[in-house]
């Protein structure tokens, strides 16, 4: 799927600079999944991740007159995103003496809590079923067979980095899935089905 480059980006950015909200929302559509997923990794809360994503895009909108002369818009966006993440990571890590409990992590690693939260465990299983085939395979080898990244990489003929990325993306997806609740995600899936993914 061609996703990295936004079709007609120059023209879109010129329209954004001229105050065209529709063009802006096309740009947001294209880049928001990356920005949001990366924020969710560190914020671990879908609402916060959505809110901070909005802050980042709002700053782009406010500075829209700079856009036409820019030769690397994704670079500009990702630098703003990275700076914002660094700020929020600092805030979050400095805010508490101890790491806050991560429910997804404990469910995936601690059998006792998995029994206790049977319902949640079931939703995780449903979430795993929704992963793309290759990602699911990598994720299961890591979680169920406890293989290391290197072992998975050599078994599937992938690079270690690809394995890492699959697992990190699988975790982000599951976090979004769990955090958001089932009914909402179903609508999302219908949307995806409709969009032809």
């Amino acid at each position: 799927m061609e996703r990295t480059q936004l079709y007609n980006e120059e023209e879109l950015l010129r329209r954004v600079a001229g105050g065209n909200e529709q063009a802006f929302s096309e740009v947001v559509d294209h880049y928001a999944p990356v920005v949001y997923a990366q924020l969710l990794v560190y914020l671990k809360d879908v609402h916060r991740a959505e809110e901070v994503s909005q802050d980042i895009f709002m700053a782009i909108w406010r500075n829209r007159e700079k856009l036409p002369g820019m030769d690397n818009f994704p670079g500009y966006l990702y630098v703003s995103t990275r700076n914002k993440i660094l700020t929020v990571v600092k805030e979050r890590v400095m805010a508490t003496e101890e790491p806050p409990e991560d429910r997804l992590h404990s469910l995936l690693t601690d059998p006792a809590s998995a029994v206790e939260f049977k319902e949640l465990m079931n939703s995780i299983r449903r979430g795993i079923e929704l992963l793309p085939a290759r990602r699911k395979e990598v994720f299961m080898l890591s979680r169920q067979e406890n293989l290391t990244y290197d072992e998975i990489a050599s078994r599937l003929g992938l690079s270690k980095n690809t394995v890492k990325e699959h697992i990190s993306e699988a975790l982000t997806f599951l976090r979004d899935y769990l955090n958001r609740g089932m009914d909402v995600i179903l609508v999302g899936l219908l949307w995806l089905a409709m969009a032809g993914f």
């Binding site: 990295t4 928001a32 999944p33 949001y36 879908v46 994503s53 990702y78 958001r180 999302g188 969009a195």
Partner: peptide, 17 residues
């Protein structure tokens, strides 16, 4: 890495929009 293979978060994107 994320940008090379982005995940799909339609609900989140809708809320952000």
């Amino acid at each position: 890495q994320k940008a090379a293979a982005p995940g799909h978060y339609p609900q989140a994107v809708q809320h952000i929009q």
